[in-house]
Computed example of a mutant assay.
Amino acid sequence: MPVQFGCQTYTWQMSYDRYKNSFAEILDTIQKSGFSGVEAEVCMLGSFYEDPGLLQEALGNRGLKLAALTLALPWLHPEETEEEAAEAERLLDYLDHFPQAKLILVQLPGSDRSNLDERRHNALQCINAVAKRASGRGIICAFHPNSPPGSVFLTEADYAVMFAGLDTRYVGYCPDSGHIANGGMEVLDIFRAHASLIRHVHFKDISLGRQWRAMGEGVIDHPGITAFLRESGYDGWIMVEEESEQAEADPDRAAVQNGRYMQEALR
Rank of each mutant, 00 (worst) to 15 (best):
S147P: 03
S114N: 08
E80Q: 06
Y94L: 11
P251S: 03
I238L: 08
S111Y: 13
R137D: 14
P52C: 14
L108T: 03
A181Q: 11
M44A: 06
T11W: 09
H202C: 00
I104Q: 07
Q257T: 01
G138L: 12
G236I: 02
S36I: 00
D235P: 03
N128F: 14
A181E: 09
L266T: 00
E231M: 10
E245L: 04
V42L: 09
T11I: 07
E118V: 06
R113W: 09
D221M: 06
G216L: 02
V171R: 07
Q263L: 09
V161I: 11
I26M: 00
I190F: 13
E50N: 15
P78E: 02
A86I: 04
R18N: 12
E57Q: 13
P149G: 07
G259D: 12
G218Y: 01
G236S: 05
I220A: 11
G110T: 07
N21L: 03
L54E: 15
L188K: 11
A227I: 05
E231L: 11
D235W: 08
H179W: 08
Q56L: 15
G63M: 12
G150M: 11
C174P: 00
L69N: 07
G184Q: 04
A249P: 02
D189Q: 07
D17S: 10
E242F: 05
T70Y: 03
C174A: 00
L105T: 01
S207Q: 13
M14K: 06
C126Y: 03
G63C: 03
A68S: 08
H222K: 04
N21V: 01
E25I: 03
G60C: 08
G37Q: 09
P149Q: 14
G233Q: 08
V3Y: 15
L54H: 15
N146E: 04
A247Y: 02
H222S: 10
H200I: 00
D167P: 11
A134L: 09
Y261W: 13
E118H: 03
S15Q: 13
G259Q: 04
A157E: 13
Q13W: 14
S244N: 03
I198K: 00
G172T: 00
W237G: 01
K32A: 12
M262W: 05
G216E: 10
L188S: 04
P78Q: 12
D205P: 08
G34A: 10
I238Q: 10
M1R: 04
A123S: 08
E39H: 02
S22R: 00
E83I: 12
R230S: 10
L95M: 10
L76E: 12
P52V: 15
N182C: 12
Q246Y: 06
A195Q: 01
V106H: 07
G236Y: 01
I180V: 04
L92P: 10
R133H: 07
C43H: 10
V130R: 15
G53I: 09
G37V: 12
V187F: 05
I220F: 11
C174S: 00
